[in-house]
Simulated scan of single mutants.
Amino acid sequence: MAEGQKDGCLIAGSILIAVGLIVLLVLLILPFKLPDFSISSASVSLINASSSSQLTANWNLTFSVQNRNKMTGIYYDQINASVFYGSDFIAVTSLPPFHQDKHDLTTVQARLAANSMYLGDQVIADINAERSRDAVNFNFKLISWVQFRLIPRRGRKRLLSVFCDDVTIAYANATAFGTLFTTHPRQCQVDL
Rank of each mutant, 00 (worst) to 15 (best):
S52N: 00
N48M: 01
D126L: 13
M71F: 07
V19L: 11
F138R: 14
L150W: 05
M1C: 00
Q147A: 15
M71K: 12
T182L: 10
V167T: 04
F37L: 02
N139M: 05
S41P: 04
V136W: 13
L95A: 06
V146R: 03
L34Y: 02
F63E: 07
I29D: 01
F181Y: 11
E3R: 11
L119V: 13
G13Y: 00
I124A: 13
S52I: 02
L119A: 13
L55Q: 00
N137Q: 09
F148N: 14
L160H: 03
Q109R: 14
R156C: 05
T168H: 08
L24H: 06
L95K: 11
F32T: 07
T175N: 10
M1F: 01
V65R: 06
F89I: 06
G73L: 12
D101K: 12
N69H: 03
S38Y: 05
F138D: 12
T107F: 10
S161C: 06
P31A: 05
T168P: 10
D36L: 03
D126E: 14
V44L: 03
S87N: 13
V146K: 08
T107G: 10
S43T: 06
L142I: 15
F98Y: 15
S82W: 09
N128L: 06
N69Y: 02
F177Y: 11
A18F: 09
I15L: 10
L16K: 04
R68G: 00
S40Y: 06
L112I: 12
N67T: 00
